[in-house]
Design a protein around this nucleic acid. Structure first.
Lengths: 201, 201
DNA sequence: AAGAAAAATGAACGCTGTTCAAAAAAGGGG
DNA sequence: CCCCTTTTTTGAACAGCGTTCATTTTTCTT
């Protein structure tokens, strides 16, 4: 039998990521402790550090798992739609994901990294922004030479902020129940603004 | 001499908040350790817990200090402006504050509380949203019976998200240098949308 | 089957927030 | 002004954290 070493270490890697992800989903990023993860993954605490640089790197990989889940939700939500309708579907699906997987979603943004963001993460994010870009391209005003990527990021950021502040619950105003309609109205407003831009040109 | 006890404890309270605030400004919320704060404020670690419930409560009061600073910046930025111009000034001032006091601003949103947000904090936030409300009221479409507070929060949240994602730097797109123009363009788009709403009515 | 190489282990280290018996300071009465 | 009571301040001690590394166990090669 050859390559037994690689295989075992990769299996442990996966177990660790799975355990970390499950624990974030249950207790949030704060509930991520080396000893508990190790217990969940049936290995020693020290083993974590033979496979990952530190707990942050493990958390990043757990977040990548969440990002994949989010990506799936966005893709299926926007399937068969286009233009402003696609924008609305994407925004609503994003809000729904945040509500339904609250702790996983929180962890995506709570994690502050000492080191620069790893390329896998940037790529995953770009993929999701690409969905917005596709929708924007179908709206006349937003086309080359406009920077589609920049606009996508801005509009995503705006919706993200609305979801974030709403779920944070530190401000008076909409309770989270109304989040969907809040987001919907906002995207509609955005679309109006874009149409108005188109008319003027 | 009477009331020497109260006075001393209040003085220590202020020293602690000041020390915590300064340390957040220098090293972020992560750099907030009980022992270092105590050293800065010239008292024992245990004293912190005679005055505050825990470190979180101390951090809240440090954040209140930051919120006052932000409030001042927003008030002076929007002074003498109205309507959409006021909205632009407010958004730009908000972005500038985030950049110039990055760690203080991060701490405002990094702090996740186990307990419900204390009323002082909610009040301070409401005060700042009121500035947006004043500006919105001067835009015809946004008037009673619209819920001004709800709209204020939504638009603030959108701008906040843009600043947040931009400074986070985890996405491709605008570098933070362009944050001001990104925010400016976005507020302009928002204003267009609002005007378009007005026309339709 | 034996020796060499690699990987997994978990006790130990230095740090954290928080507590609480002891010490210090402040107020009141003779 | 001094003594006694009450209140406040103190910092060593505690439990738990992420991380390390000498030791043990497992895997590979000969």
């Amino acid at each position: 039998m050859t390559g037994k070493r690689q295989e075992k270490s990769r299996a442990m890697r996966e177990r660790l990521v799975e355990a970390a992800w499950a624990r974030i989903a249950r207790s949030g990023l704060h509930g991520l402790t080396a000893r508990e993860i190790a217990a969940d993954a049936s290995c020693a605490v020290g083993s974590i550090y033979t496979v990952f640089e530190d707990l942050d790197e493990l958390a990043i990989h757990a977040n990548l798992k969440s990002l994949e889940l989010l990506g799936g939700a966005l893709v299926s939500a926007s399937a068969g739609t286009s233009g402003t309708e696609a924008l609305r579907s994407l925004a609503l699906a994003y809000a729904r994901f945040a509500v339904e997987h609250r702790l996983l979603w929180d962890a995506l943004f709570d994690l502050r990294l000492a080191q620069p963001t790893p390329p896998e993460f940037v790529e995953a994010n770009s993929g999701l922004l690409g969905l917005i870009g596709r929708a924007l391209r179908e709206i006349p005003v937003v086309a080359p030479p406009d920077d589609l990527a920049a606009r996508s990021r801005t509009y995503f950021a705006a919706v993200h902020g609305i979801v974030f502040i709403s779920l944070q619950g530190r401000f008076v105003g909409h309770p989270p129940d109304n989040l969907a309609s809040e987001v919907d109205a906002f995207v509609a407003l955005l679309a109006r603004g874009l149409e108005s831009e188109a008319v003027e040109r």
